[in-house]
Amino acid sequence: MRRILTTGLALTGLAAGGLIAATPAHAAVFQTYGTGVNVRSDAYLSSPVVRTLPGPTSIDVDCQKAGDLVTVSGGSSRWWAHVPALGGYVSVAYVAIPEDKLPGVPECGGNPNPPSGDITLADVQAMFGSRIANPSLVNTGLPSLNQAMRDANINTPYRKAAFLATLVHESRLEYNIREIGDTRPYGGRGYIQLTGDFNYRPAGQYFGIDLLGNPELARSLQWSAPIARWYWTVARNINPFADQLNMGKVNAAIGYPAGAEDQRRCDSFKNAIRYLTGSVPAGVVCTRSKAYAGDTSKLTRAQFDALGKTGGGLG
């Protein structure tokens, strides 16, 4: 439990496993609790893990940064402690103090706001209106989703519009959604509605987690956005289709047969572009060629890429 250890213990400077050396003059010393606490490269749950603390550890903190909310049995915090000796950030939720923010520790750079250019709740509500059915839940997931977009180079209006339009139709931008009525072990979960063992297995292998054994991880706050990023850039290579304003290919890459849904998603794409740029450019493609008309969901990336080269159908 987080609150069991006192601040006095946190300031004793005891090191676990020799991870921390002498305390820099500008740093404050705190104690973590629990085992398997991740140190991440940034203050977001989707940021890479740079190391894992095996047990309670004394950490030298030089600043703290606002990021993703982390909730554990002992409390919650959106603040992350920067630990230079470990090369990353530890959630304050795992620091043995009664507060949710480290006392006496300055904010990193003096700016706790998320990076510029991030998508906000007001943005997606303006783009998609009533499709944002649970604003509070959407807002909770946005920090991790924005990080995933940065990681995936979804950094232009066209790419953002295609990605968000896709997710608002897949999941209403709710990170923890489960496909209604789908009782399959590997049915749709999360932002991208990850489906099928042929996706759960490679996604889990990519992130080093057992998605086949723990499919519910696919709709957790920690993994839902990274998995959407994985599908967008690893299972498929979708950014170029967005650059081409080709929502027909985007929809084919997501994996369902051509039909009326294509136009609905394309309309959402246009709405997002209009909001982000002020107008809808000429040349938006909403339909698919014959090669992409079928259900492409079970194709490997190589097989999907081959469709565009051969011009053939799905067999």
Rank of each mutant, 00 (worst) to 15 (best):
A152K: 15
T52A: 09
D243N: 06
P112S: 02
V138W: 04
T35D: 11
F198A: 15
Y94V: 12
G213W: 00
C63I: 06
W232P: 00
L245N: 12
D182P: 00
R3W: 10
T6L: 12
S58C: 07
G74Q: 02
V61W: 02
P103F: 03
R236G: 14
D210F: 02
G141C: 08
Q193Y: 15
M1A: 11
C63V: 02
K270H: 11
A260Q: 09
S58E: 07
A293E: 09
L299R: 04
G36V: 03
L53Y: 03
R40Q: 09
N214R: 13
F207M: 05
D267G: 04
R40T: 01
H26F: 05
E174K: 02
A242W: 01
D305T: 13
A203D: 08
A258P: 00
V138N: 08
G208R: 10
A253W: 00
G109I: 01
T140H: 05
K101M: 09
Y186R: 11
I119T: 05
L145H: 05
S46Y: 01
L194E: 07
Y256K: 09
H82D: 10
Y44S: 10
G129A: 05
T7F: 12
R265I: 10
T12I: 14
Y275G: 15
R150H: 08
G283P: 00
T57G: 06
A225G: 10
T57R: 01
S73W: 14
A282H: 01
G181C: 14
R219H: 10
N199H: 11
R178W: 02
A93P: 00
Q64A: 13
M1S: 14
L212D: 07
G13R: 06
T6S: 15
Q244T: 03
S76Q: 09
I132W: 05
A225M: 13
R229A: 14
M127A: 02
Y256P: 00
G74N: 03
T156R: 14
G294Q: 09
S289G: 15
Y256N: 11
Q193V: 15
T57I: 01
D42Q: 10
A10Q: 03
P240M: 06
V39E: 07
L221H: 11
T57E: 03
D68W: 03
L217G: 08
I97F: 12
A126K: 15
A126F: 13
I180Y: 04
D68N: 14
I192K: 07
G208K: 10
H82R: 15
G117W: 04
P240Y: 06
D100S: 11
V95E: 02
I238W: 04
L102F: 12
V72S: 02
Y256H: 12
Q263Y: 06
A10E: 01
A43T: 01
G312P: 01
V70R: 08
V250W: 02
S46H: 05
T277Y: 03
T296F: 06
P185Q: 01
N176S: 01
W230S: 14
E261W: 09
R172F: 03
P281N: 11
I209P: 00
T120G: 07
E170T: 11
T120R: 13
L211C: 09
P143C: 08
G255I: 00
V284G: 12
P24E: 04
Y292P: 00
P115Y: 06
G196P: 11
I97K: 12
A96H: 12
G187Q: 08
W223N: 03
A122N: 11
G315Y: 01
N139K: 11
Q125L: 02
